[in-house]
């Protein structure tokens, strides 16, 4: 009798000890009691939940770090005039939102790194990197103000060279419209080229009439097809505002090493569209040989002479 009771007690103690041990070591992942409770409460037929919590914690940590880095960059760019980007060049009446967006865009430009630059890019800007671009911009644009630039549904920025050739004007559309970041960057660099007094402000050429592209399609603006023939909206040189800005963004597409896939995709889309405005066959050919050697022939067909 005593032996039987002793034996039963031993079994009970052994069982209790095993249970305690399992509870302490039931997860090889070293989970906290809260995580174990979450596992216990999770659907029993869903193994992925067991590991997804831990993976999620790790991802959250990594995500927070990436988010913090991105937030820091944005914050640095959107600081007031004490910030390092475009320090002190905004007029007082430029709304904070426009200043912030411009600074954020230029912070992105400032950070660009690339592993090469095309020959035309070297001639216009130098190496393809943020320092080059910022020096290019800040050496030309000394002030930024607010203006409607003559109005118009798609106008974002302008330079009025005969009033103040080193001042750029931004319109409210700069923050009102939802455009890709690389498009805004291309616009402001396009406008910065118009500040160059020694180059007659790189005035545009008149688009020919009829105005056809390399595929013999009529070139039209806007989605409904406003013809551009006869308008001062073309260039006859790779070095003008259209040419230089498209060369810049095309180099970003091809050579940027710290740009997202979206930035590079957008750079290509907008650069390829701008190429249509280069109407001189030699200028067009020079750009094609500089930047489109490995591109499909349909993009860079020779222009008729």
């Amino acid at each position: 009798m005593k032996k039987i009771l002793a034996f039963a007690a031993l079994i009970g103690i052994a069982a209790a000890g095993t249970t305690w041990n399992i509870r302490r070591h039931d997860s090889p992942l070293g989970l906290t009691p809260q995580e174990k409770c979450a596992l216990r409460d999770a659907p029993h037929d869903d193994l992925s939940a067991d590991f997804s919590d831990l993976r999620q914690n790790m991802k959250n940590g990594a995500r927070k770090l990436t988010h913090d880095l991105a937030a820091e960059k944005t914050a640095r760019a959107t600081l007031s005039i004490q910030g390092p980007i475009l320090n002190g060049i905004f007029d007082a009446d430029v709304p904070a939102g426009i200043q912030g967006q411009m600074r954020a865009d230029m912070a992105f430009i400032d950070d660009i790194q690339a592993n090469a630059a095309s020959a035309l890019h070297q001639k216009i800007f130098g190496p393809a990197n943020g320092r080059t671009y910022m020096d290019f911009f800040t050496s030309r644009v000394k002030e930024i103000g607010l203006d409607d630039c003559g109005g118009g549904p798609g106008v974002m920025a302008c330079v009025q060279p005969y009033t103040n050739h080193s001042k750029m004007w931004l319109t409210p559309n700069f923050v009102k419209y939802d455009m890709p970041q690389i498009c805004r960057a291309q616009i402001v660099f396009h406008e910065s080229r118009h500040t160059e007094k020694k180059n007659s402000y790189w005035h545009h050429a008149t688009c020919p009439d009829p105005f056809k592209d390399e595929n013999d399609n009529e070139v039209r603006g806007k989605v409904t097809g406003t013809p551009m023939a006869g308008l001062a909206a073309c260039d006859e040189t790779p070095y003008g505002s259209y040419g230089s800005s498209m060369i810049m963004v095309k180099n970003i597409q091809k050579f940027c090493t710290n740009c997202t896939e979206k930035i590079k995709m957008d750079a290509g889309i907008y650069a390829d569209d701008t190429l249509r405005r280069i109407i001189d066959p030699d200028a067009h050919k020079e750009i094609c040989e500089d930047l489109y050697r490995d591109a499909p022939k349909t993009i860079c067909k020779e222009l008729p002479r």
Binding site: C149, G150, P153, V155, M156, A233, Y242, T274
Partner: peptide, 8 residues
């Protein structure tokens, strides 16, 4: 469109 030049 007012000014296609500026509507890059």
């Amino acid at each position: 469109s007012h000014d296609p030049h500026r509507e890059l």
